[in-house]
């Protein structure tokens, strides 16, 4: 149930983000979700794509600083309080969330939230035990 996320280091200068998306597009790689965390000097682009290993290789060849990061994708009811409900489940277990970002599932009424946590296995167990759906890698890549 672990999803591979691409993390790409980008300097804050024009054309870098465009270049990443261009490389992916040229190689027929589809972006499922993305988020950017930025500072004044640099940003980290986080991407969920349909072919993470291939994308990793391509970006590496183009000299990008890129890594594959393990994350989980959690289904969250698309209604007020949906995310709060999921976070409330994790709260008592001291699961440290490094970051999260959301994207919409085309086929259903649910939102998907990507979580980056320290102890992935523990988080997966707690969530599934509590009836929250955690998607598998293939489910996410083929969305």
């Amino acid at each position: 149930m672990i999803v591979k996320q691409l993390s790409v280091f980008l300097e804050n200068k024009s054309g870098r983000l465009a270049r990443v998306t261009e490389i992916l597009g040229e190689n027929n790689i589809n972006i499922r979700a993305l988020s950017i965390a930025d500072t004044t000097d640099f940003g980290i682009l986080r991407l969920i794509v349909n072919k993470p290993n291939e994308a990793y290789k391509l970006l590496k060849e183009e000299q990008f600083m890129v890594s594959l990061t393990d994350v989980i994708a959690v289904e969250v009811p698309d209604r007020p309080g949906g995310l709060a409900g999921v976070l409330k489940i994790l709260e008592p277990y001291n699961i440290n969330i490094e970051y999260l970002y959301a994207f919409m599932e085309k086929s259903s009424n649910n939102a998907l939230v990507v979580f980056r946590v320290e102890d992935l296995e523990k988080a997966i167990k707690i969530l599934t035990d509590n009836g929250v759906k955690v998607l598998t890698g293939n489910e996410v890549y083929s969305l």
Binding site: F9, T39, F42, I44, S67, E98
Partner: peptide
């Protein structure tokens, strides 16, 4: 490579 992290805080 060895100092790269996907977390802004760590960088």
């Amino acid at each position: 490579e060895q100092f790269f992290s996907d977390e802004v805080k760590k960088l």
